[in-house]
Design a protein around this nucleic acid. Structure first.
Length: 765
RNA sequence: GGGCGGUUAGCUCAGCUGGCUAGAGCGUUUCAUUGACAUUGAAAAGGUCAUAGGUUCAAAUCCUAUACCGCCCACCA
């Protein structure tokens, strides 16, 4: 044996032995209850970060259960990660001076697909570097045809059940990325913006968005506000930048009389609250900002009789970006004496795109939604009834219930190409006023060439492309084009929106296992533990609960375990901009996978952050080496005796005479019981610390030193006990530090020849 | 605005259902060692457990309030 454990040369070979031995693939035994974990599917295109390294938690559970003899499955996978991947790809295009809008949808899709294929294996190889014992023979990719087929079928069922529907309402739209998002994806940031007090006929109104005033449809006041009591229901003529308009004052209990002047202008097309209010009072939805984030005054410019002054203004505003237009309008308001004052220090929160940071525009665009209330109800019930347990309970159960109880319908439409297209079809002949705003080869197939389409149908902006249809709400579910049910026309077009990535991943437990009738699904579903970080509790975990219960009638997993977030050595979140990101693979190269794994587990309390530093990883590398040298010491002493050392068993136990031996055995039994209990209770740090403490400070520092003379003198009993203690430690530590333990294990004689990974978990006593 | 978590040694944190001199890793100081390991060993310094009350025979641990830090949720224009 070498003087030190050399992780670099040992790890790869060991992993290959495990893999080629088939130990990662469980043997299906109907008599045994399996233990199953689904890997939270990483973006197939993404290199590994420290967050992924925390999947060590899963490997600990998996290795523990495998050693206990359970048919154990850890199912890996990769996510096409719709918007994420397309965004990364577009950035690359931008570097070449290109834009996605230069390509038709099929070409763009093919390009992204090729891009993903190039990088798909990186993440997988890195998982192996960490020693993760996943069943690679069952690896799934979220765009595998059978997975997509199940997802589409779920959509079909939801459509039939009235749980998937199309509606035109305000959507959080990123004008830069060109897609809408669900409420969860909105990132609110605090900002200080000017609050403008504008003259509004006989009133004064405060707003941060003067540019939307042209399409205000009403004024709202709190019905309890005495100041405006008499105004409710009355219509006023209000002179604005483009001349006078008529507006009615409506009551709205949500208006805060103490904010601004207590009067609110109502803009249903660009404010979610106003949109709802508009529905109540039958106000028209009249947009003034388009999907590119530019001012749209076409409605005004097409009027024949408009005043030349106003017309000139509208032309000036038209097509300008929101911020730019606002600045010009503020100047015009001042010139007209309509601006009363500006509060420059108004602090509010504004919705931004979590991807690119742009301000999101609430825009009225039709999208597909999932009706979530009935699904949430069952998902709440399942946790309340204890069918699925959340660990740590105290902290995260409340979060889960709060979110489920206040859940809103889920927007599953994305105006991107990278992902499965929503399988519904619209008849172009039944909807002659349809607006098609993208380039699509499918259309060319229907009509022969683009030109004829352009002449027949309205295109809002061909170049911008790939956006949602503003079609009437009639849609037919189908996987392939079928003649219109009403008019039998074959001029049908598939919805251009693709599914939100989370719509696919929410079905991961079913789709990966082969729902509805594969052997795997029947055997492994519901899975045992779902381990992930709390940041995707709503995005993913909660939605899997809803979708799993909806489709299978059964929970997708028995336990939801939320692991720690990895932060830097000062307890700060790792981020590229802060420059404090640590690459897990670098650490594996430098100190070994065992060291990194142990450093991530050791000292992490359930639900709290775990601080990682290179010093800590180095400390754990030292521990791996300590363990290695304990093995070396034992070998040297055995070799010195020149004898065969008996295996430690019950018979041998009875012959123990030395107090030191008896004591260390009894302590080992206590440790075994403790570690087993800690793992069962998801207290991995406690288990890791207990083993570390015992191995280093109890066995190596005390027992070994104290009994050195006995070992050297060839005391067979002492050596047998020591070897047994050591071998048991290797087993206990194997889930945490699989490489070094497996490596030393191989140097010791065993009753059976299997590697440590499939050896039996020790029992106390 | 609502909610959650944190505040313990120089740094990062453990301390689960209250109970012996409050622990670990890293760091610091001193000493030792060519015989498993310097990726080592022995020893040491270092904490009024955020603050103020309260419950209790007993509180870092439970309760109340305050302060600061972090996070989540929410349509206040």
């Amino acid at each position: 044996m070498d003087k030190n454990f050399d992780s670099k040369t040992a790890e790869e070979g060991i992993y290959r032995t495990w893999e080629s031995g088939g130990y990662f693939t469980p043997a299906i035994d109907p008599k045994k209850k399996p233990f199953t974990i689904l890997l939270p599917l990483p973006n197939a295109n993404d290199p590994m970060h420290m967050g992924h390294a925390m999947f060590t938690v899963q490997d600990i559970l998996i290795r523990y259960h495998r050693m206990k003899g359970d048919p154990t499955l850890w199912l890996p996978g990769g996510d096409h990660a719709g918007i994420e991947t397309q965004y990364v790809f577009e950035k690359r295009l931008a570097k070449e001076g290109k834009s996605r809008f230069q390509f038709d949808r099929e070409t763009l899709y093919t390009m992204i697909e090729a891009f993903v294929e190039q990088n798909k294996t990186t993440n997988r190889d890195q998982m192996k570097r960490l020693g993760f014992s996943m069943d690679w023979s069952r690896y799934r990719y979220s765009l595998d045809p059978d997975i997509v087929a199940t997802v589409l079928d779920t959509f079909r069922k939801m459509h039939e059940d009235g749980l998937a529907y199309r509606d035109s309402r305000l959507v959080n739209y990123c004008t830069k990325d060109g897609t809408g998002f669900s409420d969860l994806e909105v990132l609110y940031v605090e900002r200080t913006d000017p609050l403008y007090y504008m003259k509004y006929g006989p009133f004064t109104v405060a707003t941060v968005r003067p540019e939307t005033k042209f399409r205000d449809t009403a004024l709202a006041v709190n019905p309890k506000d005495k100041r405006y009591k008499d105004a409710i229901g009355k219509t006023y003529e209000i002179v604005g930048l483009l001349g006078p308009v008529k507006m009615t004052v409506i009551p709205d209990p949500d208006v805060d009389p103490s904010f601004g002047t207590g009067i609110m202008k109502v803009t249903p097309a660009h404010d979610p609250h106003d949109f709802e209010l508009g529905k109540k009072f039958n106000l028209p939805v009249t947009p003034i900002i388009d999907q590119r984030g530019r001012m749209d005054f076409a409605w005004f410019l097409t009027q024949q009789d408009s005043n030349p002054k106003y017309r000139e203004r509208a032309e000036k505003y038209h097509g300008k970006k929101v911020a730019e237009a606002r600045a010009i309008m503020v100047e015009d308001l001042k010139a007209d004496g309509l601006l009363i004052k500006i509060d420059e220090n108004y602090v509010h929160r504004i919705g931004t795109c979590y991807r690119c940071g742009s301000v999101l525009e609430p825009l009225p665009i039709p999208q597909w939604y999932v009706k979530t209330k009935p699904l949430a109800k069952k998902a709440i019930r399942a946790v309340k009834d204890g069918k699925t347990k959340i660990v740590p309970k105290k902290r995260f159960e409340k979060m889960y219930f709060d979110w489920m109880n206040n859940i809103l319908d889920w927007n599953i439409s994305r105006q991107i190409v990278w992902g499965p297209r929503i399988p519904v079809w619209y008849c172009l002949d039944c909807n002659p006023d349809i607006t098609i705003s993208f380039i699509d080869k499918q259309l060319a197939k229907i009509f022969g060439d683009y030109k004829s389409i352009i002449s027949k149908y309205q295109f809002s902006d061909l170049k911008k492309g790939l956006q949602s249809l503003s079609a009437p709400l009639h849609a037919t579910y189908s996987l392939s084009p079928e003649p219109c049910q009403k008019c039998h026309s074959t001029h049908v077009l598939q919805e251009t929106d693709t599914f939100d990535t989370w719509f696919l991943s929410s079905q991961w437990p079913m789709t990966t296992l082969g729902f509805p009738d594969s052997a795997d699904f029947k055997y492994f579903y519901p899975t045992s533990v779902l381990d992930t970080m709390w940041d995707i509790l709503f995005f993913w975990v909660a939605r899997m609960m809803m979708m799993g219960l909806y489709r299978t009638g059964n929970i997708p997993f028995e336990v939801i375990h939320l692991h720690s977030r990895v932060v830097d050595q000062h307890g700060k979140k790792m981020s590229k901009s802060k420059g404090n990101v640590m690459n897990p693979i670098d650490m594996v190269d430098k100190y070994g996978a065992d060291a990194l794994r142990m450093a991530l587990i050791y000292g992490a309390a359930p639900g709290s952050d775990i601080a990682i530093s290179e010093d800590k990883i180095r400390g754990m590398r030292n521990f791996a080496n300590k363990l290695w040298n304990m093995g070396r010491f034992i070998h040297m002493n055995i070799d010195a005796t020149g004898k065969e050392i008996p295996f430690y068993d019950n018979e041998f136990h009875k012959t123990l005479t030395d107090a030191n031996d008896k004591r260390i055995i009894s302590e080992l039994n206590m440790l075994t019981a403790g570690v087993t209990k800690d793992i069962e209770r998801y207290r991995f740090s406690d288990a890791a610390q207990a083993i570390y403490e015992f191995a280093w400070h109890r066995v190596a520092d005390v027992h070994l030193e104290k009994n050195k003379d006995r070992f050297k003198s060839g005391d067979i009993q002492a050596i047998t006990v020591l070897r047994h203690v050591y071998i048991t430690l290797l087993k206990l530590l194997h889930p945490f530090m699989p490489f070094v333990t497996e490596s030393v294990w191989a140097t010791f004689p065993r009753k059976r020849t299997e590697p440590l990974i499939v050896s039996s978990w020790p029992t106390a006593g």
